[in-house]
């Protein structure tokens, strides 16, 4: 399987994730779409790693997994904190800061 295919697949996943971030309003789902974007980047990294025969890309992907997990943890922490205070969980309603 040519490496090109993997790269096009990763581009497709990246854009699907990006669309999700733009369109969806529930913060939990937006965080899921962020995960999609990061996984797409990881796939591209691995494809190039295979192409070059260099394992540095794989180490980078491990680190990316760690980073993604940390972002998720903090993001969900904020969502839970908002839920606790009975704030509406709708990104479009976060208009208080627009001005």
């Amino acid at each position: 399987m040519d490496i090109e295919w993997y790269l096009v697949l990763s581009a497709l996943l990246f854009t699907i994730g990006f669309t999700g971030v733009l369109i969806r309003r529930n913060p939990v789902v937006i965080l899921l779409c962020l995960e999609l974007m990061l996984s797409a980047g990881a796939l591209a990294m691995l494809a190039f790693s295979r192409m070059l025969g260099d394992q540095d890309g794989q180490v980078m992907v491990l680190i990316v997994l760690v980073v993604a997990a940390c972002e998720v943890v903090v993001g969900l922490g904020i969502v839970v904190a908002m839920f606790r205070r009975r704030l509406p969980l709708d990104v479009d309603d976060m208009k208080e800061l627009k001005g």
Binding site: I3, E4, G53
Partner: peptide, 24 residues
Amino acid sequence: LFVEISIAVLGSSLTALGTDGSDK
């Protein structure tokens, strides 16, 4: 964005992209 990246990938002059990966 998808179209742009795809064009970049398919139009790239890197020959290694068309292979199955490095032999080394």
